[in-house]
C-alpha cells in the first residue's frame, strides 16, 4: 500500500482556524507541523556542541567524553560525532582507527565547563547545559562497553586525505540518535597504535527535560 485508503469529511464552522494552504486549485491543503515521537516539535530542541581540538595522540587514548550525570533528571541524545586530523607540519601518517564506546563515568583529562558549552540556537551566554559532564584529552574511563557503538578511521597524512572529516555517527544513518540515560556516557577512543599528528573530535547532542 502506498496511498491512503480512506478519508474523513469535515464540516466547516465557526471556531478555531485550522492552518491550510490554497495553491489555487480550489482545494484547501491542511498544513501540519511534524512532531517527534515524544511530542516535541521537530527541529525545535536546542543542540549543544563539545569538541577537543588538535590533541596529542597516543595508543588507546580517550579523547572526548560526554556523560549524563546521575540524578540529572534529563535524557541526552547524541546526534552526530565527527573526527579529523590537524597538522602544523608534514607527517608520514597511516589510516588510524577510532571507536565510540558507551561508558559510565570519566575522570582526568580537561573538563569542559558547562557554562562554555556552545549551543546552536542562542549565544554562549545562555544558561549552562544542565546535567552534563564533558571532558577531553586523556580521559580515564570506567564502565567501558565491550563493543563500540560506532567506529571509523581518519587518514593522518596530508598527502593522503589528511584533514578530511570522518563522521563516526550521524542520526540520519539510523533515523534515531544515541540515547544516554542518567549515569551513561560515550567516549571516543583511538586504536592500539600511537599514530602521528594530532586528533580532533566534535559531538552534537540534545537535552530532553
Amino acid at each position: 500500500m502506498t496511498r491512503a485508503n480512506d478519508s474523513i469529511a469535515v464540516t466547516p464552522g465557526a471556531g478555531q482556524l485550522v492552518a491550510t494552504q490554497s495553491p489555487g486549485d480550489g482545494k484547501e491543503y491542511q498544513v501540519i507541523i511534524p512532531s517527534r515521537a515524544d511530542g516535541h516539535l521537530s527541529g525545535t530542541l536546542p543542540a549543544y556542541y563539545i569538541s577537543g581540538l588538535a590533541m596529542a595522540k597516543s595508543a588507546s587514548k580517550h579523547y572526548l567524553g560526554l556523560v549524563n550525570q546521575p540524578n540529572s533528571n534529563v535524557m541526552l541524545e547524541v546526534s552526530c560525532v565527527s573526527i579529523w586530523e590537524e597538522t602544523t607540519g608534514t607527517v608520514t601518517g597511516l589510516a588510524r582507527g577510532y571507536r565510540l564506546f558507551r561508558m559510565t563515568s570519566m575522570s582526568a583529562g580537561t573538563t569542559i565547563s558547562n557554562s562554555t558549552i556552545g549551543r546552536t540556537d542562542v549565544s554562549a551566554s545562555d544558561p549552562a547545559a544542565p546535567g552534563i559532564a564533558a571532558s577531553r584529552n586523556g580521559l580515564t574511563i570506567t564502565g567501558l562497553a565491550t563493543e563500540p557503538i560506532a567506529a571509523g578511521a581518519i587518514n593522518e597524512e596530508e598527502a593522503g586525505a589528511g584533514g578530511i572529516v570522518t563522521v563516526l555517527f550521524d542520526e540520519y544513518m539510523t533515523g534515531q540518535p544515541i540515547l544516554l540515560s542518567t549515569g551513561q556516557g560515550v567516549t571516543i577512543q583511538q586504536d592500539g597504535t600511537a599514530g602521528v599528528g594530532t586528533f580532533s573530535a566534535g559531538m552534537y547532542f540534545r537535552i530532553l527535560t
Binding site: 466547516p12 507541523i33 515521537a37
Partner: peptide
C-alpha cells in the same frame, strides 16, 4: 485556513501560530 467547530471529545494536538492552529503529527 479553514474554520472548524470545536466540540467535546478527544483533543487533537495543535500548535498555535498567528491565529492559526497547525495540527502536529507524529
Amino acid at each position: 485556513n479553514v474554520p472548524t467547530t470545536v466540540g467535546a471529545g478527544a483533543s487533537v494536538a495543535t500548535h498555535l501560530i498567528s491565529g492559526n492552529d497547525y495540527q502536529t503529527i507524529i
